[in-house]
Amino acid sequence: MEAGQEPESARSAAQRRAEIRRRKLLNNSEDRMNRIVGFSKSDADSGERAGVGVLHLDLDHPEWSSSSKRASPADSGVCESVSERGVESAAVRSLSADGERSASPRRGLQAYLSRFDDAMKLRGQLANEKAAQDSGAQPEELDAFRIFRTTASVTFAVFVRIFVCQYLSIFAPFLTLELGFMGLHKYFPKVEKKPQTTMLTAALLLSGIPAEVISRSMDTYRKMSDVFSDLCVYFFSFIMSHELLLLFGSHTA
């Protein structure tokens, strides 16, 4: 009877040892995997909070799963915890938006890293665009309104040189011309301008300025650049016509 119990207890002790060894191995593998993936458990939690698709190893369900994956109805506990985390993440985001980002330097660093990822993506896009431009694509096409502006500026400059400049400054008619362009803008077909990704855009995005503000600023910058181009063309045409008139005037004299 005792002899029968002894091997049983020995077997159970062996089973226990095997179980302990198995758990230890699994724990070790989890640690190893965490080290490979590159974050601790708190990092993984914050990754889930941010809604980023990060991978984590679950010992109870030992398959690779993404945090962005929906939990099954059976794992209602997991669901609850995820929803709680979602609420918490919203709170955290609002707090960070209020300027409490500096309270946790780690979160700030993560936000910076995510922005850095965005900037790197933009950089890749920029490199692709540059390659496309090098392969022969035009950087900016001359649309109908652009051609009209240039032609009108040249014609107006010649007109101003011949008839107007004796009476007033050449910049006053130019301002009138610009006002006219602003009014005529809506009568021309709208050209969908591709948002250009520049290093400046990437740098602004990296420094935390919203994309909408950047695009609006770039639009304003483009308009100012158009006005400057018009001014250059206008002034150049004016000086050219002045010099040509002087030349022909001196010849005829």
């Binding site: 035009q138 900016e140 001359l142 240039t150 400057f228 181009s229 250059c232 063309v233 002034f235 150049f236 000086i239």
Partner: peptide
């Protein structure tokens, strides 16, 4: 007078526009 800097800027812009239109 039209200074050299102003004229250089204007010429650069106009020439760039012309070359862009031609190419």
């Amino acid at each position: 007078g039209v200074g050299i800097t102003c004229w250089l800027v204007v010429c650069n812009k106009v020439v760039a526009l012309i070359l862009q239109a031609v190419s």
